[in-house]
Design a protein around this nucleic acid. Structure first.
Lengths: 111, 111
DNA sequence: TTGACATATCGACACTCATCAATATATACT
DNA sequence: AGTATATATTGATGAGTGTCGATATGTCAA
């Protein structure tokens, strides 16, 4: 997958409030699906949580490990760093000299 | 707006391919709406571009400047940096001690 | 003022997707 | 074997939104 599609999928992932909450909950700790349902205060049902976890897994944003009947998830923080880095890289001037003023406009400075 | 809502809106913004393309096109240059339509290769009509620009403007991700009949937009690269920084901050271990070694998965300390 | 141009807004449509109840699948325990 | 637990999957539904044609608004020029 190319860089652009990578960060678009990343955007879709963090662009939903429930998924954002799940990602924050999975930061630096392993949680089972039911743990997550409990963490979310029963406001989201188990199938919904499973659905979001599948999305996150397919986006490479979580690690999964099966232990007995439980499936534990944790955030792939490295992937988050990579995605953010790609975004910033593609949306910033490569060098200071890349700032392009538009001739046809009197005085327009890039903020 | 709180940090979480900020980066959720940021995710929604970059989570759409057309908007992502627009943001990349607006990086480091001022473009009018018609310039953008042309840049996008006529694959997207003007009302659609205006719609996306409105979304980006409300998310604080673009600067706008009116010159005569034209409305020029450019990417607010500082805002992009801030959003990415917020995401990384909220999705990373606060201290090194919180880091879970991803390689040594066998041992799971689940409450 | 009239006409031409640039952009925003409106209304409608189609499509994506978040959600959940019901069900299926898988594993553990007795 | 059977029962209980944990999670995934299915199917349906509703909300959200990307898209565009048509139209409105605003600006400049003659």
């Amino acid at each position: 997958m190319d860089e652009k599609q990578l960060y678009i999928n990343f955007g879709k992932a963090i662009g939903d409030e429930t998924r954002a909450t799940i990602m924050e909950s999975l930061c630096c700790v392993w949680l089972s699906v039911n743990d997550l349902v409990e963490t979310l205060g029963e406001s989201v049902k188990q199938p919904t949580v499973s659905h979001h976890l599948k999305v996150l897994e397919e986006a490479g944003l979580v690690y999964v490990q099966q232990v007995g009947r439980n499936r534990y998830y944790t955030l792939n923080r490295r992937a988050v760093q990579v995605c953010c880095n790609v975004v910033v890289t593609r949306l910033q001037a490569l060098t200071e000299g890349d700032v392009i003023p538009l001739d046809s406009i009197p005085v327009l400075d890039i903020p």
